[in-house]
Design a binder for these strands. Structure first.
Lengths: 233, 233
DNA sequence: ACAGTGTATTAAGATATTGTTAAGATACTT
DNA sequence: AAGTATCTTAACAATATCTTAATACACTGT
């Protein structure tokens, strides 16, 4: 999976660098800008996954920046501001911000809230049926567009049927899929009731994605019924 | 557009009512619960748009609740907690919470953050409208579509026959079902009069869903006739 | 209190379902 | 055509579930 791209909008050089250093520790990539107008430019050209936005920039009102971006994008915007007044918070959030942190903020909290936003981006991207759709669940990751699967960031090789099976389960995360349904979806079988075959594929698939096949994290079996993909922490 | 549905999870009655009153001013609809287990139940059956979750409930760790819900749903969870420690925040956010407010909180900020979450739900709701058919009775909950059963919000494992039996009783809540009828429905038996077997299954089923098997809340015995599922609480 | 009826519980053996492995068949690539 | 990867099939092992039967319990009426 590609590294998260984050846009830091902050006119105070010290704070900006501090945030940058913090993101460095997580191996995130970022771009730093100091003004509202350059923030809008970068949001457009750099296409970050997240924007960390300081209010109180010299050239533009924070709310204005948020509104401008919201005209064409839903990317997460986390406001970082010295103003702790309710009115400011409400204004920013209602303008379209996703979160609001007041300075001084805790590094850990910032990172946690960044992760929340990233989670959302990842989740959203799976729903836009167009290209670049990615499924992420726990340590497991599927790039539908590229047809690749990753576990713990490392690519794992799946055979065509294994991949189809995994995608089918992934696209129905949380739901129990019956043997019959799965067989239909994968082999297009009409009468063919080849459940044993499904079992061996499930076994080989599990061997590739589960750390402990005897108590699977991802794909759970429902005896007498079928299988279910669970959402994993 | 339908009114937003919000689940308030808070054991302090005063605060719970305060939040409820706040939501009233916005014409939001809500449900109030006081425990972790009822929160899980309501999340399942009430299907709120948002959950407002107090940590520090009497019966369950807040993080545990978040994780359980996240196994099958991405609904926004806003944590409202008295703990302002970084560690608590990070833990909750990483477990899957979307936002974290510390008490005492400002009403305006709460509402603003609720609006943020609602915005997201509205945006998401393009695909997610898969209405599940769900049975709820007291602490018991059946998701027919998924084929899963929950007690106190926690999933419990039922064998195929146990599940069939429970569904049969549930779908006829309030009615007495004779042994013969049940045997027919489950085994399709015509002459087979294997009431002892039914008793065994009823015993194992009760052991799984009743807190006190010697005085069952859910499934009542009618001597000489059969069984009846009662509506609870 | 006693027998008698109906029910609950328990445990062990039988059966069914699922997981695993491996060898042969098929399809693909070079 | 050889070699690799993938699929299919079948046999077996490991579980989970069901059945059965024996025992314990609760209630009823005499």
């Amino acid at each position: 999976m590609t590294k998260p791209q984050i846009l830091i909008v902050e006119d105070d050089r010290a704070i900006s660098n501090f945030i940058a250093a913090t993101l460095d520790t997580q191996n995130y990539q970022y771009q730093q800008v100091k003004t509202g107008s350059s923030a809008l430019m970068s949001a457009l050209s750099y296409r970050p996954d997240i924007i960390l936005l300081d209010l109180g920039l010299p050239d533009m009102e924070g709310v204005e920046i948020i509104q401008k971006i919201r005209q064409w994008s839903n990317m997460p915007i986390i406001v970082i501001s010295a103003r702790s007044d309710d009115k400011d918070k409400v204004e920013a959030l209602d303008a379209g911000a996703d979160d609001y942190l007041t300075k001084p903020f805790s590094v850990d909290e910032l990172l946690a809230r960044v992760r929340v936003a990233l989670r959302r981006v990842r989740y959203d991207s799976t729903k836009l049926s167009s290209e670049a759709s990615i499924y992420e669940n726990g340590q497991l990751c599927i790039d539908y567009a590229a047809g690749c699967t990753f576990l713990n960031g490392k690519e794992i090789h799946l055979t065509p049927i294994e991949y189809k099976l995994l995608c089918l389960m992934a696209k129905n995360t949380g739901k129990v899929l019956t043997h019959g349904y799965i067989l239909n979806e994968i082999w297009g079988n009409v009468g063919g009731n080849d459940t044993p075959a499904l079992r061996v594929f499930m076994a080989t698939l599990r061997k590739k994605i589960e750390t402990d096949t005897s108590s699977p994290k991802y794909i759970q079996t429902h005896i007498g019924v079928g299988y279910r993909m669970l959402r994993v922490k």
